[in-house]
Design a protein around this nucleic acid. Sequence first.
DNA 1: CCATCTTTGTGCACGCGTTCACAAAGACAT
DNA 2: ATGTCTTTGTGAACGCGTGCACAAAGATGG
Lengths: 267, 267
Amino acid sequence: MATGRTHRPATRSRGIPEATVARLPLYLRALTALSERSVPTVSSEELAAAAGVNSAKLRKDFSYLGSYGTRGVGYDVEYLVYQISRELGLTQDWPVVIVGIGNLGAALAGYGGFASRGFRVAALIDADPAMTGRPVAGIPVQHSDDLEKIIAEDGVSIGVIATPAGVAQAVCDRLVAAGVTSILNFAPTVLSVPDGVDVRKVDLSIELQILAFHEQRKAGEEPGEETAPAAAPAAPPAARTATDRARAGVEGGRKGPDGDAPAVMPA
Amino acid sequence: MATGRTHRPATRSRGIPEATVARLPLYLRALTALSERSVPTVSSEELAAAAGVNSAKLRKDFSYLGSYGTRGVGYDVEYLVYQISRELGLTQDWPVVIVGIGNLGAALAGYGGFASRGFRVAALIDADPAMTGRPVAGIPVQHSDDLEKIIAEDGVSIGVIATPAGVAQAVCDRLVAAGVTSILNFAPTVLSVPDGVDVRKVDLSIELQILAFHEQRKAGEEPGEETAPAAAPAAPPAARTATDRARAGVEGGRKGPDGDAPAVMPA
DNA sequence: CCATCTTTGTGCACGCGTTCACAAAGACAT
DNA sequence: ATGTCTTTGTGAACGCGTGCACAAAGATGG
């Protein structure tokens, strides 16, 4: 999964474990599907299968919310949809700003899902003056000079960063200063934020690298390649004093500076 | 973080914990930045700060790879870049196919990052005949009829699903049948795959909902709203027998069938 | 009203991941 | 060569999350 929680130790809000919170949206999605098919009740076994989790885990998760099931019967679908929605804060409207309307930002803006579950795209913001006023997904792009004003006027507390990595921290700082307390970061950078601000990151590059790791493991079951993989790079680990600071130039030809690489993938 | 691992219990490949594997790309990114600035060595403390983790955790992570540091000095940047790259399987070329060239798929194809770290977009695939042949990000879109052929010819083992949720499982099945063993799923669905296939998911909707949960917690510190939140929906939890199956019609006006909602956001 | 059967809710144990804290290793100075 | 100082590598403890397995709750049928 492309999600990665950030160093905030999970807060443990009202005793609901973070791992459980992360699964609630999964349950909600499965329950919504059942609701649309007018299924009145569902057992933990069925729902767990639909959500791709263990049934015991599901029951324990629900137990943190209270006892909403009926023994011998299961869970009332509609009631559970409401309870989870309420728990997740989806019964209210969350205005969201998207900063950085490049390929990805535009794609995010285009997905109608924002509106469908309590999230509303309050504004699209980009630093490029050429973008200003141009409608993307029906919403006119505003210039980043007005960022603070937009946040304040619409009472935005959730921001999505889809900018190049080089400016992500600066954008983040401005968002936080303006009052945003939750950030979803698509830029390939570690954001540092003050306490009380939540950051979640979506990083395609990291996900692919994790997959590559496992893929390599699946493919390469041939033993004996640990030592000296033939085309090794250069330096042995423990033979180089600190005085030996004369650098031999950066190895292969990685190119430009890292800072302004396009969002999501670079490294 | 928008990533979510799937039910595969992590395999524990050669003793490297899954949690460590997930952090290696983070370290690699920080190290690459240092490398570009020609920094020769780095201490665990500095590198940990750059990667946004604890220094003890970083040292333990590296200890799983072997002892690549020098006491009293730190780690050799270039050497560590190579070792981690090798461990992640980034020293080889990974052809990747992207299935579903809508807004998101096009955005993914457009990010040059694929090429920069061992990943290469081998093909873009879409089911819409109108898309076939049209170049997206310089790569011509191919029709999904040829999916199996493309996978086989290019030896693709990693697939990215950016289709609507309704067809994601079908696409997944075809990819797996054709030989793909790692899947990055952007569609808001739980994919079921046979053993030996890795699935990671990126789900914007889930990330936002998790943020909303914490956001609600931050905002609402006013006590006493647990019981009966005024505009409650309907049914009490435990008063409805199983014979009472006469459904009262699906509540509020959620609209279309869930299946073909646009990728990433819907639920 | 009682017996049976289904399904929830949870006590308990286990394993993974994180963190602390320190000994060992090596660089550097004299 | 010896001592000091820095930084790694890791043993050990702790806490969270997971899964088992079962008792309690309630529905259903006679």
